[in-house]
Design a protein around this nucleic acid. Sequence first.
DNA 1: CTACTTACGAAGGAGCGCTTCATTAGTAGC
DNA 2: GCTACTAATGAAGCGCTCCTTCGTAAGTAG
Lengths: 383, 383
Amino acid sequence: MANLRGGDLSRLRQLNSLTAIRALRGAGPLTLSALAERTGLSRPSMKEVADELVELGWVEEVPPSPGTMGRPARRYRFRADSGCLVGIDIGGHNVRAALSDLDGEILAETRQPVLPGAPLEERLAAIDRAVSGCLALSGRTAADLWTVAAGTTGVLTPEGRVTFSAAIPAWTGLDLAGKLREMFSCQVLIENDSRLAALAEARRGAAQGARDVVFLHVGRRMGTGLIIDGKVHRGFGAAAGEIVMLPEARWYDAPEHLNGCEVVPEGTAPEDAAGYTLAAARDGHPVALAAVDRYVDDLAVGTAAMVLVLDPQMVVLGGGFSRSADVLLAPLRERLERTCMRMPEVRASTLGDECVVMGAIDYAADHLSRELFTSDSPLTPMR
Amino acid sequence: MANLRGGDLSRLRQLNSLTAIRALRGAGPLTLSALAERTGLSRPSMKEVADELVELGWVEEVPPSPGTMGRPARRYRFRADSGCLVGIDIGGHNVRAALSDLDGEILAETRQPVLPGAPLEERLAAIDRAVSGCLALSGRTAADLWTVAAGTTGVLTPEGRVTFSAAIPAWTGLDLAGKLREMFSCQVLIENDSRLAALAEARRGAAQGARDVVFLHVGRRMGTGLIIDGKVHRGFGAAAGEIVMLPEARWYDAPEHLNGCEVVPEGTAPEDAAGYTLAAARDGHPVALAAVDRYVDDLAVGTAAMVLVLDPQMVVLGGGFSRSADVLLAPLRERLERTCMRMPEVRASTLGDECVVMGAIDYAADHLSRELFTSDSPLTPMR
DNA sequence: CTACTTACGAAGGAGCGCTTCATTAGTAGC
DNA sequence: GCTACTAATGAAGCGCTCCTTCGTAAGTAG
């Protein structure tokens, strides 16, 4: 059962203040009249609320826009720049970071290469460099950090420990959330990278507007992220989406069809192998086409399982192989048409390599909004 | 983006009135002081709110409880009896109905047998009789009906049309929601029966308290219901949970292992066949045990797929075969342990045949609560 | 019958949002 | 450069909702 607390007049003021913040965050700078109209409050009341928000630091006045009829109107904006969020993508070969304002508008991005086998300390140092780089690029300091959200490959516990990571051996067993909390003295959130990518696609990418989305990370390793009712679905033990563990879903060995194809030149690095096959298939090479067919056959089984279970509005194809989405989408759709009850839209990722960091930013922004808008205590000064 | 409307003092009163209703619904009759303490309002304000609620008919005063120290306190209760909800389970062989008060407390139940091949009109008449029976048993009339929620076998559209029903041939293509709206001049909700059963198990049954639940209907036909974040998950096209359509999940033909077992006497009705096999297995008959093993082998594949995708807290086994849960649970758990990342609890349904009607009642009650507590308009008189 | 406990009811006060209206600071037209 | 027009501003006054306080009422316990 939800909240049982009633409220007095200050609660009403709190609600109206939050409504005003929401209105300002949704649209750029607004005049007092526009704000009053949107919130349904009268002008004098809106003024009172705005004055208080300015006082507390959540909102500031901006110069009136010239060239309008009548007396120039005060304009207000949400001070999205008075704090920042950082999203981190901890991958095998790279640590990426992005810094955004409190609205999730991205202000800086960095990338730090790391070797997959690098020891723990080295990777943590890379994280530190990536974040420091973002802070420097955007002229901020660590004190401006409100929330850090990190996505990493591997299986996590709900508390942010790494149960197992094939891509980053040193990661296995690590209390990642704990380590990052030592590094950053702010709110720290940990999530699986595919789930964050899924969130990014649902918010800014190919699946914008969809409430239920299945994101497929297709690459050397298979991964998934589920968005259900607009939110990341983790599951009770943060293990949702691990369909790759089911042999009958035929996902685990699926990439081998592409990696092991005979069109791949002898001595190619394992991470580049599939690219050759996909490129050859695009050129119509029959052996490569057959390999892609076998790959998609397998890919479609696990995908159909997820689609049948969840009936999502959309399936988004991301990850390394999705650069060859033109080769993969049509046959995948064809397979899914055969088994799926209701065929979802199937699209390629539109966000590319920055997918995970953007998802991390969105995750942090969601968390912030939830904290702000569901709080029961009156609005406090903005740090 | 959520609600952008601010509110004035009447909004505050509305919130406090709703909080009071919530408090009263959560606990039996409460004195004014108890109510004030729970809601955090002062006594005089609480009195004002209570007076208004009594005025509008949502709440009534009950005689003070005797034998207490001090002056006897006024007591109030939510008038859960001033309206009623009806849940209907439209199955192949039976139409069941249950009637509850507005809190979902069940007051009457009825059952009307129907032949699976019965024509449309006959089944609709059975529905009418089942509901009329409940009304008569509880001394209500159709005018007291607030919401009717119906669960039926088959695949539905989001709007409540039946796309296809193997168990009820006459159902296929029917605008069920439309038909029921003609019969009942109140709110009508339609949902798949397994989903409602899942809801009932999550609210009152084996999975009480769990937010993420996979419900398996095991019987002559396989079905599933998913509870995600405490709510029924339908999917974008109301087709969620149809893993039975995936050949690799090995569900479709799974019941055949039990139905076609050689321990089943010649000439047994198809709906009774599996019962023989399960009973023989319980007695240790080796042929039956082998059949059950093969059955569970298949059952576990589709189940593991759902568990891996969703990572639910609990899996509940319901439907006809779940009467033999003692024979099925242990081997099912054993199979799941092998493939599942994180093993969920696996339990047998505790609600039995009334599962679907109870779920329908819960579904209707949820709908009512959502309407009541998320409304933006001030509280209206209770009809 | 008295003391004690608990609830009731009335009075007075503070905070919040609303409406109203005179005032102010711009643009547009002559 | 002056006047008319437009739209926002700021101050005043009202009503509603919740709060605190305090004397009174209706029970039980001894």
